[in-house]
C-alpha cells in the first residue's frame, strides 16, 4: 500500500480555541501526485478542510502554503519533490494571520502591493496606436511581470515577518521595480521618493529566502538591489 502520512495544520475559530496538527492517511496508489491532489483527497475524508485553489497549474497563485517547512504552490509541487520519510506536513503561509486551516488573511500583503502604485503612470497623451517599446526595453520586464502574487516570498522573509506594515516585502518590491524598469513609465522620481525611507526597501537584509522559494523562479533580491542602485543614482 502506498499510504502517505499527512500532517495538517487545523484551526477553525468557531470551534477551536487554538490551532493543532491533525494526522491523515492518504492512499496515493503509488502515483506521484501534486500536493494539491493530496489536499483534495483529504477533503474527501474531511469536508471541513479549508484551503484556497483555482487554476491548479501554477499561474493564479491561490494555493501558496508551507510544505514540509518550505513555502510553495501546492498545485505544482509533486510529492517526490517534498515528501521526506513518507510524511508530508502542511501549514499555512507563515507570518500572516490564519483565518481557517490553510487559509491566511492576505490583507497586509495586498496592502503593501497597493502601496507601490502597481500601475503604469504616464501623463503624456496616448498615441493613436500603442506606445512603442524596443524588444531590448521590453526584455527588462522579464523576470518581473510574471509575479502571481502568491505571497510565498514575502511570507518566507524575516524582515516582512517583523515589519509587515512597513517593509514592502519582496513581492511588492519586485513589482515596484517592474514599473521603475518600464520605459513607458514616467513616475520614476515619485516612485523612488516613496521608497527611500528606512523601512520600505532598506529593511531587506539580503537573506534571499524569497529567491529560494519563488515558484516562478523570479529573483526579488536582484530587483531590490536594482532599486537601491536607482535610489543611489538619483540621490544628490
Amino acid at each position: 500500500m502506498s499510504k502517505l502520512q499527512v500532517s495538517l495544520y487545523r484551526y477553525n475559530p468557531e470551534t477551536d480555541s487554538a490551532p493543532y496538527m491533525e494526522e491523515f492517511q492518504v492512499d496515493t496508489q503509488g502515483r506521484d501526485l501534486m500536493v494539491l491532489d493530496v489536499l483534495h483527497l483529504v477533503k474527501e475524508q474531511d469536508n471541513g478542510l479549508a484551503y484556497r485553489r483555482s487554476c491548479r497549474e501554477g499561474v493564479c497563485g491561490s494555493d501558496g502554503m508551507n510544505m514540509n517547512g518550505k513555502n510553495g504552490l501546492a498545485c505544482i509541487t509533486p510529492l517526490s519533490e517534498v515528501v521526506k520519510k513518507g510524511k508530508l506536513t502542511l501549514r499555512p503561509l507563515p507570518g500572516l494571520p490564519v483565518i481557517r486551516d490553510l487559509v491566511v488573511d492576505m490583507g497586509l500583503f495586498y496592502k503593501q502591493y497597493e502601496r507601490i502604485q502597481p500601475y503604469l503612470q504616464n501623463d503624456q497623451p496616448a498615441p493613436a496606436i500603442e506606445r512603442l517599446q524596443s524588444p531590448e526595453e521590453r526584455d527588462k520586464l522579464d523576470g518581473l511581470y510574471e509575479c502571481i502574487l502568491c505571497a510565498c516570498c514575502s511570507t518566507a522573509c524575516p524582515s516582512f515577518w517583523w515589519n509587515p506594515d512597513k517593509f514592502v516585502g519582496p513581492a511588492g518590491l519586485l513589482q515596484a521595480y517592474r514599473f521603475l524598469a518600464d520605459s513607458r513609465d514616467e513616475a520614476t522620481r515619485e516612485r523612488l521618493a516613496e521608497l527611500e525611507d528606512p523601512f520600505s526597501v532598506f529593511r531587506c537584509r539580503g537573506i534571499m529566502n524569497c529567491v529560494a522559494v519563488c515558484p516562478k523562479g523570479l529573483n526579488p533580491t536582484r530587483a531590490i538591489g536594482k532599486i537601491r542602485e536607482m535610489l543611489l543614482a538619483n540621490a544628490t
Binding site: K166, L195, E196, D197, P198, S200, F202, R203, L231, A235
Partner: peptide, 18 residues
C-alpha cells in the same frame, strides 16, 4: 513612504550609505 522620527537621517538611503 514610511515616516519615522527616531532615526537621524530619516532616509533609508543615507542610513544604508552610512
Amino acid at each position: 513612504m514610511v515616516t519615522n522620527v527616531t532615526n537621524f537621517g530619516r532616509s533609508g538611503l543615507s542610513d544604508w550609505l552610512v
